[in-house]
Write a protein that binds this DNA or RNA. Sequence first.
DNA 1: CTGTCGAGACGTACAGCGTACGTACGGGAG
DNA 2: CTCCCGTACGTACGCTGTACGTCTCGACAG
Lengths: 210, 210
Amino acid sequence: MPPLNRGRIVAAAIDLIEREGADAVSMRRIAAELEVGVMSLYNHVPNKSALLDAVSEAILSEVEFTDDPAAPWTGRVRMQARAFRQIAHTHPRSTMVVVSRQLKSAAGMLPVERALSTLREAGFGEREAVQIFRVFIAYVIGSLLREVGVTPTFAPVHGAIRPADVDPELFPEIGALAPHLSACDHEAEFDFGLDLMIEAIAGRLAQRTA
Amino acid sequence: MPPLNRGRIVAAAIDLIEREGADAVSMRRIAAELEVGVMSLYNHVPNKSALLDAVSEAILSEVEFTDDPAAPWTGRVRMQARAFRQIAHTHPRSTMVVVSRQLKSAAGMLPVERALSTLREAGFGEREAVQIFRVFIAYVIGSLLREVGVTPTFAPVHGAIRPADVDPELFPEIGALAPHLSACDHEAEFDFGLDLMIEAIAGRLAQRTA
DNA sequence: CTGTCGAGACGTACAGCGTACGTACGGGAG
DNA sequence: CTCCCGTACGTACGCTGTACGTCTCGACAG
């Protein structure tokens, strides 16, 4: 057994989150997982919050942000958004941890930097680039949260709607659309909205340069 | 002092969340707030989770979803999205609680029903209406989370970027756009994206009926 | 008036949490 | 050898949600 270190603690935390969910994470649980005393963890991590920051950072660093500066900006934006969505695939149950922590580190700022530079190179103004960036972020994060099941009320996923639950008198549309509401191809839905937004932004760019 | 009842407990919980944040909510704390024994709460609420559901439902019920079926669908969609955003104004610190709970009740499904019927009346197909609905939901929830500060990493808000934090070598765009990234008129940003998306959807509708 | 009964308020108790603090050990520096 | 420091660890405190048992009090039957 190698000596305890920060990396092993973070890995154990991620593993535990993916196996049993974020609620199962406790310092005691992680220590048990590593067959180590609880307080030994504190030699490598100042506190639980910092550990979750490290988890977030580690996951973020794994995302493959391949970017081709020569490609048209529409494709680049699409690729960056899709890369971000990888998180929901590779670490579904950690997704909420990642998006809800403020990272001042490079891992957190790199995607921001890349997105902003893409938009600036596409020809958008300073304020405009930031606004568009924010719209994309909102959409991407909202989509991720639906995909990992954090916002179930307003984004009913598979099995969430049981016909017995809906009174067709009160909720005719929900009843009628139940088949479509219950099934959700996350990738297709994500791309649908992504293309829609890129289309809208491209429209504005074209309109202005005309 | 009126007798303890479910309504008073929920009201106290909301009050506590808004005053001290969702983390401050504990059964003991709420009981203390009501000058009552902890276990007395359990005569009116089965457990903490159900209490938070009730909180979510209560807040959702307060939202004023005024809808004019005669208005053009673009305006109706805009109004519904804005109504939802009210939550971030009226109960900022409870917002995360509301969006993260699955509500099978009428309060949770009414906004869904209304949005879907608006889209159907606008002329969208069944599957299409659901897809568009999901895009809006993702955007609205993502925006709310930024506004209430739950996703700070990718949506830096006021004061989050200190010039000392960013190395202009590594992050030139973030450095250059720092003024715009630090300031955020949430209402304006929300409307910007909302109009953008409505525009894009209207474009698709026009294109198809042409 | 008295006996009974049910509902609500409450105290106690337990397992689990984050972590502050004190201690023990093992290897490198002087 | 001695000293020292980083690491591992046990204990302890105050907090959490809540299961369980008890007590009190108002309503109603006889």
